[in-house]
Amino acid sequence: MSSVRGGLAGVAMAALAVGAHGFAGGGYPGTSGLMLLVLAAAALGALAAALRPPAALPILMVAGQPACHVALSGLVQHGHAARAMEFTAHGPMLLAHAAAGAGCAFLILVAERLYGLISRAVRVALTRPARPPARVARLRPAHHSPVSKTLLALGAIAPRAPPVTA
């Protein structure tokens, strides 16, 4: 399941970084910028697959968006390539990348949960019911001694007990 999470995180990270970057006015990448972005997104996807707790995914996705921004702004000429590391200068760009990362992480976690539920339902629906167990004869102990009804009728509590009158 973690490999699915990592793959989704890497693909969504790249797609949303390009969308958020273009939406905030940063432009869209060329082939070299896209390759650098794919490398950054693949590395972040591999890291997301290695992380076990699902709560770490939103942190990774939001922290990975600046790496994608640097990959995009370093190779795309949109007026601030020289100041690619200064995120305070581009407030809308930073907000767009952070919102994209958090929204993407939320959607991945929801998709992962739904995948688990739906696959379990399909597995239950397609699995043949188990055969009923074969009848097992009840075995009696070899040294079973029947209780004498006459002893119990005389007032004894058990076969080895003294009579009640004694």
Rank of each mutant, 00 (worst) to 15 (best):
P133L: 13
A43Q: 03
S145D: 13
P163T: 09
A161D: 10
C104Q: 11
S145T: 12
L51T: 11
S145Y: 12
V11T: 10
T31Y: 09
M85E: 07
G116W: 09
S3W: 15
G74I: 00
L151H: 06
R128D: 15
V38L: 15
G79S: 07
G6E: 03
S119K: 09
A105S: 02
A14W: 02
Y115L: 14
A89E: 12
Q77D: 13
S119D: 09
P129N: 10
V62T: 10
G64M: 02
R52Y: 06
L16T: 10
R128Y: 08
C68T: 09
G19R: 07
V70E: 00
P29F: 01
R123V: 01
A158V: 05
V18H: 01
S32R: 14
L139R: 14
R52A: 14
V4Q: 11
S73K: 03
P129K: 12
S2K: 14
G27M: 04
V62C: 08
L139E: 10
A100N: 04
M85D: 05
A158H: 08
A84I: 09
G155R: 04
A17V: 04
P29V: 01
A40G: 03
A46H: 07
S145C: 08
C104A: 15
V70D: 00
K149H: 09
P66K: 06
P53L: 01
Q65C: 05
P133R: 15
G10C: 06
A99R: 06
G27W: 00
I59F: 14
R131F: 11
E86S: 11
G91F: 12
A71N: 01
H90Q: 13
A100K: 02
A12V: 13
C104T: 14
A49E: 07
G30T: 02
V11F: 12
V122R: 14
M1H: 10
H78N: 14
H143N: 13
R140M: 09
A121F: 06
E112A: 11
P29H: 05
P159W: 07
L37Q: 03
V136D: 08
G25R: 04
V62W: 04
